[in-house]
Structure formats: C-alpha cells, structure tokens
Design a protein around this nucleic acid. Structure first.
Lengths: 336, 336
DNA sequence: TTGTAAGCGTTATCAT
DNA sequence: ATGATAACGCTTACAA
C-alpha cells in the first residue's frame, strides 16, 4: 500500500498538481465545481496531503507540544485534558511528552517538538534554572509558548499561574484557627518558586496570628519523601501538632507512616495537603487539601497559546492567575 | 534567529552540501578529518539537520507514537514510563497521545502520529470493534505496531498481555478461601476481552470450589460507576458478602459508598480490586488488589516494537504474557 | 480559473 | 573522498 501522492491524483484527473493543492487549501481561486470533483476523487483514492511535505513549505503543523515534568500524579494529566478540549476544538492535535523530572530529558523533549515544527508549546518546567537560556532563544525566535505551574519570572512568555502564596496562607490559617499551633511545613524542591511562595504563605499566616513561625522541612515531592520525613519526625522527642504538606503525595506518605505507628489523625497530628489529588477524599481520614482548577488551568493555557498563535503583530505575553478552593475534610478538623 | 541550513554550513566551509550531509550520516565515505571539522563548525553555527526535511527523503523519524485510552489513572502513565526507558536508550523520542476513551479521537491520534511518520506505534485500544479495519490496513502497510492491555485477537500484531483469567481466578479464589461466599463481580465495558477473561476467571474459581457462580454486574470503569453500583446494591434486601471489582477505581468507589452508609469492610462486605493503583495501600482499609507489572509491560512493548523495527525480512508477531501478583490486604481478610 | 516551475532542507545516485 | 543534481511531496508566485 504505497502512499498516494498529489501527483497520482493530478495524473488520474488530468489536471496539474497545483490545482489539486488549491482544492485542499481553500484560500486560492478555484472553481467550486472542480474543487468538489477533486476532493471526491481524492477521498476515493485515499489521498490526503502529506503533512511532512506540507510542513517543509508552510509554517503550520496544527500540532501543539505539551511538556510536563511527570504525569503519574493526576495533576498534569488533568491539565492536559483541559487543554486538549479547547485545542482539539480548534483543529489542533496535542503531542505530549514527559520529562521524568529531568531537565536534560525536558530539553530533548522540547527540541523534538520544535524540530517536528509544532505551532506552539505548553510547558511546565522541571527546573527553574537549567534551561533558561534555551527557552529565551526559543521565545525570541517567536515560538509561541505558554508556561504553567512551574514557571520562571525571568522568561517573558504567557503564564497560567496559581496563587500559591494565598492558598498556602489559607491552608495554614485554617490549621491555626482550628487550634493547632506548632505546625510544620514539609515541601519539595527548594528552587521552585511555587515552593517559595507556599513557604511565604505559611509564614505570613503565622505572623498574622502573632505566632512563632513554624519549621520548614525540605524534601522531594513523592509519597516516599513524605514517609521518610514522618519517620524522622517520630524519632524526635515531641511531634508537631499539625503538618502542612506542599502536595498530597507528601501528605499521604506522612499520614501512612503516622497511622502505621499508631498515631491518630487528626487527634495526635493534623494534616493538610496541597494540589488536591484523587486520593484526597478516599483515604482515611479524608485529607484536607487545596484544590487547584486543573481543568481550567489547561483550558486557560490553551487559550493563551491560541491567542498568541493567532496574533499577527507583536504579542504581549499575558499572565493569568486562577483561583482555587480549600476543601476541608476530617484530617485537619480538631476533635474535641 | 533564522534556522541555519545545510547550505549555510556548506557555503561557510566552502564544501558541497553532500559533504555536510555525509558528515552527519556516518555511513558514507568521508575523511575523518573533514568530518570532524564539519561537525565542529556545525555546532558553532548551531546547525543540526532539519528532521522534517530528513523525513521527506528517508523513512525513519526516530519518533515512536504511544496511544492510550486515558491517563488519569496511573496505570497507563506507568506503562509509558517503562516504555520510554528502553526507547530513549535507543535514541527514540516518545510522542504520547490520549484518546479520552473515544475511538474517534483514537483514530485521529493514530493518524496524526502516522502522518508525522513515527517509526512505530504502541497502542492500547479504546474499543475492540471500532477501528479494526483501520488498524488492519495500517498493519498491512508495514507500520510496526504493538498492542497492550486492550487488544483484539483478530489483529495480527505483537501484543503484551496480562493473564486476566488467571489473576481473576486467583482473586476470586482468595475470597472463597477466606470464607466469603455470595460474591458479586462488578466490571466495565462488556465488549473488551479483558472484561470477558476476568469474568471467566471469576466463574472458574466458583466452579472449582463447587459453588454457585456469583452474579456479574456491568458498568463503566470509573469511581463514580463503583459508587452507583454500591448504592443500588444497598437498596437490595440482602448485600453480597464480597465484591470483586474489575479495577481499583470501581472498588474504591464502591468502598466509599459502603463506608459512608455505615458498613464495615471487610466485616459486612469484603472487597478486592484489580490493576492495583497507587491508592490501594493508602486507603482505609487497604485494598486487596491484583498488581500488574506496569513498568515491565511498557518495557516489553517497547522491546517488541524495536524488534519489529529492526527486522528487515518478514516479521512474525510475538505475544508476551506477563505475570502479576495478588496483594492481599485488609479489605478482603475475614475477621473472626 | 488553471498550469508551470521554483523552492522548502535533506539524502542518494552518479560522476569526477 | 568529494561535488552536482535529481528526488521526496507539497505550496505558491508568476504566467497564461
């Protein structure tokens, strides 16, 4: 089964290749009648323009590249689905690549996508330091690109953001209001600004309530990291009264260890997570967590990207901040 | 920042384009010395061959397409990561597309990937009926392709399988041995053969133990489906003693509803899941489930695909069946 | 309205 | 060992 080419169709119909081409690209003058005839014949012969060849002459590929640091947690898949909804609607296909938390892999992924001439990119960084000059060049080469979740200020591109400071503040304040003092914040990669913002929110809540600012412990972002920290906490003389974790995986890992060691949650220690995962309401006790609007983040990123793609003149990068919600569940509610 | 082309380099170095080309494709005769000189210069100028143009003349793209029905549950992401491990090693990039449980989207995804000239495809079907003739044509057009998880016998391609019958049998037998009789099996899409195989295993275990075969209830594969079924079960006069769910989402949904209505698990009703998810050991009570070797499924699929890609003569499709494990946890252990 | 032919960035065949 | 040039499948001035 050889691929039918434009020439085959042209020959068969006794017209020139350009006529065929025109039939497939509405913008040229072509008699409606002949166009219909060509399209019909093409369908019969199973012909459709080879996108590779098309890309070589044109600019557009109608493919969008989506690069995420990982996708085992449902956060990124949910964002992707949101983006895909609006992109498919507009006739774009979404090519997804995951970086396995490695900036080298991320770099390769972006390169592959760019080489494949995607019309735009939606990216969440693995690192906020490593690929910056690369992205700068990419941006100044006019590649439409939108960052989300893990972004860096320095890059002048559109961004979809979440107010980590604010929601971290609310989450912490919730614990304080419930009467838990002596709260520890466990968080992941130090260098990410979402980490910094969450820490700032954590501290601000303490200051507002005139409390001594709680300890911050750095680790990774996985369940295993949460377990490790909980174990080290248990070895201490006194346990904190509450833990505010920078994501649900961390919270769930810690919770697991505490329960295994006979501690009551929230009785002995209360727990709050962040970026609510699917597990939150199904684990025991149900986990209080900050819900990010994953779906909408994806949709917004896609929209911003389309705006940029469709802008002919100079494009001014936009930043959008989306709103969240604190879902209060049993894990953080003071038992009397 | 225009893209540097082969001509730019050729002109700059005063050699012909073919020499440059040769330098980048080892297989040609070229003096080592000049090749090194060219490669060095190319790097300086930031030149690398344009893969689009390359694809137009060659066959290979060194891209592999990966199509999954969904990826919110961690099953597919884990498989992808496994496959990516071996593929990246071999210099391939992995383009992922998700079909959103729609066979139309799946069809478009595969087409996009094929149009982009991927060297091979790894696919898990959304439906076992819908795209068959399409895949048949694809296969007979010599596109290397490996199916996994959701496959159809009819298609003669390599497959990575899991012995659903066997593990369903074991899971059911475990419940029987624990003393639970009156077991109900809830399962998803009727038309999938993995569904049928799991049902067969469920029934075979009953027959082996000379028990009346339990009821089978069809629904979808989501947490919400599990919740709905549990509710309808509660409305009945008598509750079954145990539930064997065809996946963890279903099990967890059902569990959630039972707990909310005050039923003890496993006291009032025992539960077993399938395709162990991350949640299994973190929910309460921890869920007994059949663990599939997700990682290895991915690796095996990738290996099979590479074998096919690297076979010059006729390729004989291979099928691999991977082994699982029944992780017994609290949710299915008889309380005395 | 349609055809001719140059060009997109490579690789591959044939000379030299 | 290297250079010229056709070819890959398509788009797009430019002509007709």
């Amino acid at each position: 089964m050889k691929h039918t080419t434009i020439k085959d169709v042209a020959k068969k119909m006794g017209v020139s290749v350009s006529t065929i081409s025109r039939a497939f690209n509405d913008k040229y003058d072509i008699k409606k009648e002949t166009r219909d005839r060509i399209l019909k014949m093409a369908k019969e012969m199973g012909y459709s323009p080879n996108p590779i060849a098309r890309k070589l002459t044109q600019k557009r590929s109608y493919n969008i590249g989506f690069v995420v640091p990982e996708f085992v947690n449902s956060f990124f898949p949910e964002v992707i689905i949101g983006a895909q909804e609006v992109l498919l609607e507009e006739g774009y296909q979404v090519l997804i690549m995951q970086s396995d938390l490695s900036w080298e892999t991320e770099r390769k992924n972006v390169k592959t996508l760019v080489d494949n001439m995607v019309d735009g990119l939606i990216v969440s960084l693995t690192s906020e330091e490593k690929n910056n000059t690369y992205y700068k060049e990419l941006i100044s080469s006019k590649m439409p690109i939108v960052f989300f979740n893990r972004v860096v200020d320095e890059l002048s591109a559109s961004k979809v953001l979440f107010d980590d400071f604010k929601w971290s503040f609310f989450a912490t304040e919730h614990l304080i209001v419930q009467g838990f003092i002596d709260i520890i914040h466990i968080t992941g990669t130090k260098s990410l600004s979402l980490t910094k913002n969450r820490i700032n929110g954590f501290e601000a809540a303490h200051r507002k309530h005139k409390l001594k600012v709680g300890e911050v412990i750095y680790t990774g972002f996985t369940t295993e990291d949460g377990e490790r920290i909980a174990e080290s906490l248990i070895e201490r003389e006194v346990l904190p009264k509450a833990i505010f974790a920078a994501n649900d995986a961390l919270a769930i890992g810690a919770m697991h260890v505490f329960k295994k060691n006979g501690y009551q949650i929230p009785g002995d220690i209360a727990i709050v997570g962040f970026s609510e995962s699917r597990l939150a309401e199904h684990i025991s006790p149900p986990l209080t967590s900050v819900k990010q609007p994953t779906h909408d983040i994806g949709r917004a990123a896609a929209q911003l990207l389309l705006d940029q793609i469709n802008t002919t003149g100079v494009f001014i990068p936009q930043s959008m901040v989306l709103n969240g919600r604190l879902n209060i569940r049993e894990s953080s509610v003071k038992v009397i």
